[in-house]
Write a protein that binds this DNA or RNA. Structure first.
Lengths: 224, 224
DNA sequence: AAGAATCGGTTGTAATTACAACGGAGGTAG
DNA sequence: CTACCTCCGTTGTAATTACAACCGATTCTT
């Protein structure tokens, strides 16, 4: 029962009693496989009939640009899902998934999960969890788009920071990015971001030290 | 049985036999309501326990910027869902939904749909359809982000057009936007977009007339 | 402690874009 | 036909940003 450790903090299985897990996993044709570092789990164009959950290790999700180069667009940590949107959307993969380390993956057959699985309370919870995961990813993506849609970097930054302040409920809050991470999230150059942050600080709109930010002028948020 | 008309092309009910609809709708506590033009269906901050489907008419989804102004971020047409991500994600509304015309809406109680509803083949199809809708929206949002993440407008445009060409499988294809719509989608100024398109045409990278585009130089897509 | 690496701010320059304003093409209504 | 409207390309200017390069501070390693 190595499983308990990571299953417990896997959002897909939240609320499902431990004793029902074994039979549930069998019914949805779950199977584990271990991948070595740099091994490819999924290729662009692949038909996706299963989605995966990282049990241990780490995955990279990479997108091949039409320039030929590949960019890392996400990393999947323990307990997180991947390829679930392709499986549920009945779409081919548009990304490549690669093992960042030696990684154990639990694969779940999507059709088995949605169609052939007999009814049970555990299964109902599973389906609801799956929808919640898809929905929350939706909300996250929509939020990011609302920032990316701003015309200037200054507006992107303020849009993001205002949302964070709102989410925290305080004017002082911590962000989960370093500068490069925030620049990537906002699709901007790191040094340009630094310049904008410095300007906002000099104007007295906000203050920050490392990842700790504070919005100072309420009116400035309004006057964009 | 006015219902048939729009239920038939509603993705949420696709594959469910007509004769099972009535009992299914009762089980998920579906109820219709008619809204007059400009009436508010959902406000920012509302707790969302139901999601809706437009039976007839049209809705506007609006986001209040922290500037105080409101921007239209989507319109919901007949057969389409709204607020499903908030309901499934168990989140409060971050947008306002307003009737653009006199609009009939079918509300579905999310908890009834996922928990209290007894099992049936129709219900299984419903759940799968719901997941497919959420997943496809996910893919759509991810695609848009991949365009918005480009640093220059030229790259955004080529990223978008390349994806469209790939999707169509041809180098000549039609896009579903007018210029202003494409500019909004790419979060850019319309005249700037026109300028970039003109430059690309002059360089021989692509040709276009109205919404009909053609990518000409394969290498140019690569050399970005 | 020395060296290496990472992170973040600064500078300068060239390129890009936002923005406002204008005008022409094409469609529509009167 | 004329007036009007929408859509789209063009122009000019000011502002913004990407990009490269550099440097100081901090952290980590050995």
């Amino acid at each position: 029962m190595e499983r308990k450790k990571w299953v417990r903090n896997c959002p897909l299985f939240r609320g499902i009693p431990e004793e029902e897990m074994e039979i549930l996993l069998k019914r949805i044709k779950a199977c584990t496989r271990i991948y070595q570092k740099d091994e490819i789990l999924l290729n662009v164009g692949d038909t996706v009939r299963s989605f995966g959950i990282v049990a241990s290790g780490e995955l990279f999700v990479m997108k091949e640009e039409y320039s030929g180069s590949t960019a890392m667009v996400a990393q999947i940590l323990s307990g997180e899902l991947f390829a679930e949107a392709f499986a549920a959307g009945e779409a081919c993969a548009t990304v490549t998934v690669m093992a960042a380390d030696k990684t154990e993956v639990l694969w779940i057959d999507y059709r088995a999960m949605t169609e052939t699985c007999p009814d049970s309370p555990a299964h109902k919870i599973l389906m609801k969890n799956m929808m919640q995961i898809l929905a929350r990813k939706n909300l996250f993506l929509t939020g990011r788009i609302s920032h990316l849609s701003r015309r200037t970097l200054r507006e992107k930054v303020l849009s993001y920071l205002s949302e964070q302040a709102l989410k925290e409920g305080k004017k002082s809050f911590e962000i989960p990015f370093d500068r490069q991470g925030l620049a990537d999230y906002l699709a901007a150059d790191r040094s340009a971001l630094s310049a904008v942050l410095g300007k906002l600080k000099k104007e007295g709109v906000l203050s920050f030290r490392k990842n700790q930010f504070e919005l100072l002028k309420e009116e400035e948020q309004i006057k964009i």
